[in-house]
């Protein structure tokens, strides 16, 4: 996983919970089928419009609710570049880092608009809005997770730790 991510923004509001990202009724289906229904409760066009590398920018408490990693699986299936939010729910944040889905918190995401081109620097804790020519302060990746993110997530990190190539 790269520490620098650049992409086009899709905006969402507060409390985008795991039942919205990954509805329970589709969870036993293959990932590509589940991904067709990602976010559909609030945005029926999501699966159709999202492009590889796009960045989701949302408000407070992104990913609240379930521990279901199908939420990360469907977002990764759509090749989301990163998620920027005012805040994340705890389990969602942790799962994202574990599977190599970049997540960044910043104080007020309302300054970013849909369609903006933004660049995220995970190590420096910066969010650069190229459309507006403004730089925002984001959270830096916690020190003890840098190595894991560098390797691409928990599985490669464990492989390294356990000496499995």
């Amino acid at each position: 996983m790269s520490f620098i991510i650049r992409g086009r923004v899709w905006k969402y509001g507060d409390n985008i919970n795991t039942d919205i990202i990954s509805p329970g009724q589709y969870m036993s289906q293959p990932v590509d089928k589940q991904a067709e229904h990602a976010m559909e409760a609030i945005d029926p066009d999501f699966a159709g419009k999202i492009q590889a590398g796009d960045i989701i920018v949302a408000g407070n408490n992104f990913g609240s609710g379930s521990s279901r990693e199908t939420a990360q699986m469907v977002l990764k299936h759509h090749q989301i570049g990163a998620i920027v939010a005012n805040s994340f729910a705890r389990i969602f944040y942790r799962n994202s880092i574990n599977v190599g889905l970049p997540v960044v918190e910043m104080v007020d995401t309302s300054v970013i608009e849909e369609g903006d081109e933004v660049e995220i620097d995970l190590l420096a804790g910066k969010v650069i809005n190229h459309t507006k020519g403004v730089e925002y302060k984001g959270t830096k990746l916690p020190e003890h997770l840098i190595e894991m993110v560098k390797l691409g997530g928990l599985e490669p990190y464990l492989a390294n730790k356990l000496g499995i190539s």
């Binding site: 990693e69 574990n98 928990l154």
Partner: peptide
């Protein structure tokens, strides 16, 4: 599962994790 925290009612520190973390 996120409701793993129910076990805290008996005084266990219990919390939900994702499937990848469970592998570890």
């Amino acid at each position: 599962d996120s409701h793993t925290c129910m076990a805290g009612g008996l005084g266990a520190f219990a919390t939900g994790i994702g499937s990848t973390e469970m592998i570890g």
